[in-house]
Design a protein around this nucleic acid. Structure first.
Lengths: 336, 336
DNA sequence: GAAACCACTGAAAAGGATTACATGAGGCTT
DNA sequence: AAGCCTCATGTAATCCTTTTCAGTGGTTTC
């Protein structure tokens, strides 16, 4: 049996309440405090967090639920969230849903059993809709995937704006037939699609959008199919880094040169983005800010449960690289 | 106040013990079981995991402690470990140490307070040595960084063998001045360095090794320095994917062509490895197997606490790509 | 027909902390 | 000197389960 607070109390010649107060910064005389601390050191006592949580009715735990931690955006997000959480004395329970509504439901139940104080969640489209009907018994902050309105706090990239920026950039370097390739599971892709449609329409460009499973292989297949048709597009916008990688692979396979034959651009700046092909033009997400803002929203919510929901939109940053370099001699507009 | 087992019992007209048995698959008559299940559904009861853990003295939780979840190897590892854990009804506590011994110690204390049933840990070199002196009060499985002997179970790549394979491969394509670039924090790098020394010696090659902080920037700086000297090496081996990226960046900056001027190779196969430059030659680690084996070792250990420690070594797979293609006209040995 | 056994069930203890409440000792005010 | 705070401390209740133990009623065994 491990050493409990009783053993420490006995050894220090005080009551268990006093030992507890030493941990909780309650009022304890310097003399007793020292005796207790000595006893703790001597016994190697470690407070039992389960007991503490049970009694104090405070789990000191939050949930983080994403599609797949291996997706670079979520990797970075989780790192930020964990850092912030530990700094505030909170534990994090990480869940990978693989975009499955069933697993989301299962993990939601788990969160309830853990009595989490809050959840940071990037839900699938289905769950996002269902979330409008019934609330979990803890505050939820949506992240990355915000949905239309908001009974819940959310923090997302300004996806429409960001995608429009990409479209306008491709137009600037003289591309007129720009196709969009979007993931078929997230609401993010819906917003990005909308931005794509709006921007192409505003510029008087044709538009053609494809929705694929959000992985490189599916994207590659789709692009190979699209570019095997007689009149090829001259630009591609990809709605995630995985999809963008698939596009690059497809270009290699088809023997098309970037940016000469096709200019390509997408989302998420990774360590390798500048080293793939001629360098990839991307929208960089402020993932650090997104994660910290999510935590801030959660803390605010805990303080004011009834306050109206807030939706925070952050803007991305366009990083221009070789994959959208202007083709010399073909373009005479100035590049901004 | 949330609904407790008492409320369910009351509503179903049974004792709390019976409700508990419904969850624990104890002996309950079909009739009562149904009444209890109805009451659970009606009340929306969720068992309180803190209370359960306190009473049953079983945390159903394991720890996973790595340097940085953003490092691709650890990202993949964490995904495997989480999957395996949830499949067995275990929670995972993830900790990022940033290679700091101080944070390792802090998180070890946290693990004790959580009463984890075990820890999967990729320790810094310092902690690895200290681990020889005193044991945490739970089983530890070392992963990726195994250390020399073993009071603890461990599962690692055969790093010496893998690095030797890289050296021999570079030699096969006609490279004779191969430098090695290794991280300066992990024991992994030590093993890889040893493999590098052994293999170059066996082939009668000169050797020159550098130890750098395990990030792309530091690696880039070091390589730029080394390659600015009069007689350039013609091959580089990097001991991690981050370092390898730094090498690629350095080559760009120096205007050196790969593989013509310098052949480069390293560790860890990522989604983007084939798309960076001419494609990167790497040793692929069986990260899925490593993670699953770590869990297996942990479960075995829980069953047999006194059994002798096991050290499992898995072998990597060489993936040859453009960064080590033979230079035409310069080499006449056959490529294997 | 008594004994042994079985399958269920409930009452109550236990697990390890926090915390409401009671107590007692000093120090102040009046 | 009585009354009243304040501060430090201890006692005991409480958080919500699981689990032990002791039935209960019914069936099988000898």
């Amino acid at each position: 049996m491990a050493v409990s607070i009783k053993d420490v109390a006995q050894r220090a010649g005080v009551s268990v309440a006093t030992v507890s107060r030493v941990f909780g910064n309650g009022p304890v005389s310097p003399e007793l405090r020292e005796r207790v601390e000595k006893a703790i050191a001597a016994t190697g006592y470690r407070p039992n967090l389960s007991a503490r949580r049970l009694r104090s009715q405070h789990s000191q735990t939050i949930g983080l639920m994403v599609a797949d931690i291996r997706s670079p955006f979520f990797t970075a997000l989780s790192r930020v969230v964990e850092d912030e959480a530990y700094r505030s004395g909170l534990r994090v329970i990480l869940c990978n849903t693989d975009e499955s509504a069933e697993r989301e439901a299962m993990y939601l139940r788990l969160m309830e059993e853990e009595r989490v104080t809050g959840l940071i969640w990037s839900p699938t489209r289905g769950s996002l809709e269902r979330l409008a009907d019934e609330d979990p018994p803890f505050p939820v902050v949506l992240v990355d995937r915000g949905g239309p309105v908001g009974r819940h706090d959310s923090v997302v990239l300004d996806n429409q704006q960001a995608t429009a920026t990409l479209v306008r950039h491709l137009h600037t370097i003289g591309r007129g037939r720009i196709v969009g390739l979007f993931g078929n599971t997230s609401s993010t892709a819906v917003d990005r699609h909308l931005g794509y449609l709006t921007a192409t329409a505003a510029l008087g460009l044709s538009s053609e959008a494809f929705f694929v499973p959000p992985n490189a292989e599916a994207a590659e297949r789709e692009i190979v199919k699209v570019f095997s048709r007689p009149d090829r597009p001259d630009g591609v916008i990809a709605s995630s880094s995985a999809i963008l990688l698939g596009v690059v692979k497809a270009m290699r396979r088809l023997g098309l040169r970037t940016p000469d034959d096709v200019a390509i651009a997408g989302f998420d700046n990774e360590t390798w983005s500048e080293l793939v092909g001629p360098g990839l033009t991307v929208i960089e997400q402020p993932v650090g800010d997104i994660g910290r803002m999510a935590m801030t929203l959660l803390f605010d919510r805990l303080r004011a449960p009834k306050a109206p929901a807030r939706k925070v939109m952050l803007s991305g940053r366009l990083i221009v690289r070789g994959s959208t370099a202007p083709v010399t001699g073909l373009v005479d507009e100035p590049v901004d």
